[in-house]
Write a protein that binds this DNA or RNA. Structure first.
Lengths: 332, 332
DNA sequence: CTGAAAGCGCTTACAG
DNA sequence: CTGAAAGCGCTTACAG
C-alpha cells in the first residue's frame, strides 16, 4: 500500500549523507568508511529500501536480464529437456540477481530475438537450439552481444556447452556389440543436425574399435516422419535386425509403438536402445536402455558461461558435459 | 559494429527540431504537425533509430515486461499445457511489444516473484497455477500489481481465465451415462485443488440430471501416487466397473499402464475416458476419449486481460473458455 | 504546433 | 573518505 517507493535520495537525506555515499555503500564500489557503510546498510535493511533496477540499468547500460531463446516448434519429447535446461539457467541466473526474458523462435525467424536485442532488454543470450546455418548466431555476433549455445553448434567460434554425445554413443554402441549383437539397425533423424552427425560418429567409432563393419543397409537416417520410421522398422525386421538403435527419443517412441502394434516382443524378438533419455520413455514397459544426460546441468553451465562473458571474463570455447549409460530390460 | 547507439538527441539535432518533437512524433502523444511528424518518422526509419526502452521505462515507470509464473514442480504430463499457454501469452505480448520475464516457483515459495516485483522489472503478472491459500495472490494484491490467473482460482476477487471444466465434465459424463454404462469408477487427484472440485461437480450434475446415483464406493479421490492409483484400479475392477473416468491425464496414463500390465482390454473389458486432453496420451493405442481444452487460447486470453488491466481498462472478473468432447476408441 | 527545462533514480569521473 | 554535479535517454507539464 506504500505507494511511493523510497529512493536513494530519501535514504541520503534521512542519513545526512550524499547519494554518492549511499550508492557506494550498496554497490561496494569506491572507497567508503566502514562505519558509514554500516550505517547506510542497516538503514536500508530496516526501511526495506530496494534500488530501482531500471534506473541502475540506464546509468550502467546493463539490464540484469538474459534472454533464453527456445524453439517454438519443439517436438513433444524434447519439451522436458528444454524445460529442465531453463530451470538450470534460472537457478544460476537467480543467484546472480539476473532474470530471464523468454524468447520463442519459430524455425529460423529471428524477429523476436531482434526486437529484444534492439530494445536493449538483455545483457546476453543463451540459445537452446542452433542450426547449421544460423541467423541467430550471425545476428548476435554482428551486434556483439555475449551469447552461448546450449547444445552443439557448428560454428567453431561460438561459445558452446554440450554433452559428450560422441563418447556416449560410442560407449553404448560398444556395449551392444560386446553382447554379440551384430545386425544392428541404426535409426536417426535429420543428417544435417550437428548432434546427429556427432552421434553417428560415435557409432562408427565403436564399430571401428571393434573391428566390425557398419553396413549401409543397416543405417536409416533422415527419418523425419512417422511413416518413414515405420518403414524403417519394417525394413530392419525383414533384414532380421537383432537390435534397433534409436538416435533420439522421438524416433524411439515411434519405434516402440510400431513394435507393439506388430506384436514384436522386446527384448526377445529384438533389442532396443535409445541415444537419449526422455522422461516420456521413462514409464515404458519394458524399460528402455538409453543414455542419460542432465539437461539442468547443461542449463546451469551455459548460464555460468554467459554471465562470465557478460562480466568480461574469458571463457572456454567449448565445454563437454558428462553422461550416463543406463542399461535396462530392452537390451537384456 | 556501430558501437554508439543513436539517441533521440541525435535525431533532434540532425533534423533541427527539439527532443520533445521527436518524442511526440514517435509516441503519437501531444499535438504535432503532420509534416513534422512525417519528417521525423522517415528519418528514424532511414537511420534505423530505436528508442532506448530502458530510458523510456524510467521516464514512464513502465517496463513493457510481464512476468509469467510457472510451477517448477510440474508433473510431466502438464508440461505441454504450460508450454502452450506460455506460447499463447507470448504471441499476444509480442504483438503489443511486451516481453515475458519467466519466474519459476517452487511450491508456494514466492521469493523469486517477490524479487522480480520489488525490482520493478514487470508491469503485471500472469499466474499459471494458483493455490487454495495462495501467497502469490496475497502478495500481488497487497502490492497492487495487476495480475491474472490462468486457470481457476479460489479467490472471488482475482481476475481469472479458465476453461469451463464443469460443463465439459458434465457433458462427457452424460454421454457415458447415455451409453448405458452405470458402474462408473471416478478416479481423481487432490480434492483440495479447485479444478478437481469443479470437475467433480460436473460429474455429479450429470448424474443428477440423469436421475442416476453416484455411489461413494465408485469415487476414488486424492490419488496422489502411483500405488494409490493402481489400488483404485484393482478395486474398481473387482467391483466390476464398466468404465473408468480419469479426472486428469497423469492419472489416466497410470491407469492405462496398469491395465496393459494386467492384460485388461480397452474398450472390451472396460471403457476409459479422461477429463483432460494431453499430448502424452495422443498416441495411445487405443485412442482415448477425452475433453479437449486449448491451452494456447487460455494464454492468449489471459495475456489480453492482463494488458488491459495494465492500461487501466476494466476487465471481467472471470472468463470461461470453451472445450471439445473428443470421442475415441476407448469408449466404443 | 513547438521547445526549454525539469524529472525519472541511479552511477561515476572529478575535486577536495 | 565524502560530495556536488553531470550524465544515462527518455517523457511531460508548462509556457509560448
Amino acid at each position: 500500500m506504500s505507494d511511493k517507493n523510497i529512493t536513494i535520495s530519501d535514504v541520503a537525506e534521512a542519513l545526512g549523507v550524499s547519494k554518492t555515499t549511499v550508492s557506494r555503500a550498496i554497490s561496494g564500489k569506491g572507497r567508503i568508511g566502514e562505519e558509514t557503510r554500516q550505517k547506510v546498510l542497516s538503514y536500508i535493511e530496516e526501511h526495506d529500501y530496494k534500488p530501482n533496477v531500471i534506473a541502475k540499468s540506464l546509468a550502467q547500460s546493463k539490464t540484469f536480464n538474459i534472454c533464453v531463446v527456445m524453439p517454438g516448434d519443439y517436438a513433444l519429447v524434447d519439451l522436458p529437456f528444454f524445460q529442465e535446461a531453463i530451470m538450470g539457467i534460472q537457478e544460476i541466473a537467480g543467484m546472480m540477481e539476473y532474470d530471464i526474458l523468454l524468447c520463442i523462435s519459430q524455425g529460423d525467424d529471428i524477429t523476436s530475438l531482434k526486437r529484444i536485442i534492439m530494445n536493449r532488454k538483455v545483457d546476453g543470450v543463451v540459445l537452446l537450439r542452433t542450426f547449421v546455418d544460423d541467423p541467430q548466431v550471425k545476428f548476435l555476433a554482428e551486434k556483439n552481444i555475449p551469447f552461448v549455445a546450449a547444445g552443439s553448434s557448428q560454428y567453431k567460434s561460438v561459445k558452446q556447452i554440450d554433452h559428450d554425445h560422441e563418447t556416449a554413443c560410442r560407449e553404448l554402441t560398444s556395449i551392444i556389440l560386446m553382447r554379440g549383437l551384430r545386425n544392428i539397425a541404426i535409426l536417426g533423424g535429420n543428417e544435417n543436425y550437428v548432434v546427429n552427425q556427432t552421434r553417428l560418429r560415435g557409432v562408427e567409432d565403436a564399430y571401428e574399435q571393434f573391428g566390425a563393419k557398419l553396413e549401409q543397409t543397416n543405417l536409416f537416417m533422415n527419418l523425419e516422419s512417422k511413416s518413414f520410421i515405420e518403414k524403417a522398422v519394417d525394413d530392419a525386421l525383414s533384414q532380421n535386425a537383432d537390435c534397433i538403435l534409436c538416435m533420439d527419443d522421438a524416433i524411439c517412441s515411434h519405434v516402440l509403438r510400431k513394435l507393439r502394434q506388430d506384436h514384436v516382443k522386446i527384448p526377445d524378438d529384438v533389442k532396443i536402445a535409445s541415444f537419449y533419455n526422455s522422461s516420456v520413455l521413462e514409464n515404458n514397459i519394458p524399460s528402455i536402455t538409453s543414455l542419460s544426460f542432465d539437461a539442468r546441468e547443461l542449463g546451469m553451465t551455459a548460464c555460468k558461461n554467459l554471465l562470465s562473458q557478460i562480466d568480461g571474463v574469458e571463457v572456454p570455447r567449448r565445454t563437454l558435459l558428462s553422461y550416463e549409460v543406463v542399461l535396462k530390460e530392452s537390451t537384456k
